[in-house]
Design a binder for these strands. Structure first.
Lengths: 218, 218
DNA sequence: CGTTGTGAAATGATTCACAGCT
DNA sequence: AGCTGTGAATCATTTCACAACG
């Protein structure tokens, strides 16, 4: 395995956008794409795209562009989407249910394999074919079903405790929907989806009169 | 009005976190906070916090720190949270409903003032006291109710059209939940919340074995 | 020609180091 | 002593400019 420079964090953000656009173009029947074209679709500079891709070796063709099929395959591999990620959702309120039934997740290799909630009224109900389990079965089920990712969709007050329990149970990555920072020291990876902060930033942008898609994705 | 340097984009992200923590400390009964303490709570360097805040004038006290009350007030003002933002939600499926009933929004000055959906089975139903309206009333209602922000929670295929209609109707900012880039040229601001991309990046982080809260928010 | 891949330059953001206030 | 505010230094990321290729 050859030594590689670390992947810049902003690059990772973009790879996932590249893959989405590559899939879209392929679905449309295209067979290749240039960095310029990809950039135009995503609002990015074309050099940026070439730099990003070149981090993983040379797989474009001068004068031609990139072939969609191998490009998509390589991106999937890089992003770890060439396998199934067994995932638990903790918190089956409205948000949790929306997440569980969110189309794109299921289609992309993220397999919801367990759902938990603290509310006895929810436990036992079924969402998208998943029976909601009580919180106290968390450790046992995570471990038995070899679940690697956890989605935290509980209220803010409960988020840190749920995170601790998930990590203790062996989960390696957390997707956090609660508006708070989760401290997992260095035992897992955490990514957050923070509606409030996002909306707040939007309000700021509007206040200062900033126009356009500021946010070439997040 | 004095000329100011433009606010770095990453700073805006952080301001919103500062405000959240300031509110939390105040609710706890504290009356002041140092940049060091704030940094520890949010996983940030203390200089960073002072730099960010100093962009808006000097309002700390050497030897003491920052007084929470004026700091919170100032942050609210900067972020545009010192007023009510009338907001429409387009797309009242599970995700839209979760957003509408998402506690933090309501509490923070974002007032959901209209809800639309294309599905005739949903139109007429009530979510959190809001009657779901048919899409063809969008322009009329946005304008009559003087709505400034739009939340797009429709499927990807419909997102761009909804965005166009919202912007045409006079909305100044869009919060986009669809996994696609919205093109509004320079007629409005757009911020995106992209679950899939986020989860994908988490999978990548786990794949490469990166640990910790990589992502000091967003 | 159009397009990739990449060193070099430019830009942007973070952190250091420290003067100065309480 | 504890803390803010900030110029200067460092570090990271983006963009430019261009050689090489099909």
């Amino acid at each position: 395995m050859s030594r590689r420079p670390p992947i810049p964090f902003p690059t990772v953000k973009r790879l996932s956008l590249y893959l989405r656009e590559v899939d879209r173009l392929q679905a449309r029947g295209d067979t290749r794409v240039s960095s310029r074209q990809l950039g135009a679709a995503l609002g990015l500079n074309d050099t940026q795209i070439r730099k990003d891709l070149s981090l993983f070796g040379q797989f474009g063709q001068a004068g031609i562009g990139y072939l969609l099929a191998p490009l998509g395959e390589r991106l999937r591999e890089i992003l770890g989407k060439d396998r199934i990620w067994r995932t638990a959702v903790v918190g089956a309120g409205r948000l949790g249910q929306a997440i569980i039934s969110y189309g794109p997740f299921a289609r992309e290799g993220f397999q919801i394999t367990a759902v938990f909630d603290a509310d006895p009224d929810l436990v036992g109900k079924t969402v998208e074919g998943q029976v909601i389990l009580p919180l106290d079965q968390l450790e046992e089920v995570i471990s038995a079903r070899q679940i690697l990712l956890g989605i935290v969709s509980v209220p803010q007050e409960a988020a840190q405790e749920v995170a601790d329990r998930l990590v203790d149970a062996g989960v390696l990555g957390l997707l956090n929907f609660a508006p708070t920072r989760l401290d997992v020291t260095d035992r897992a990876s955490v990514a957050s989806v923070d509606f409030s902060s996002r909306l707040e930033r939007l309000a700021f942008q509007v206040s200062v009169g900033l126009k356009g898609t500021i946010d070439a994705e997040e």
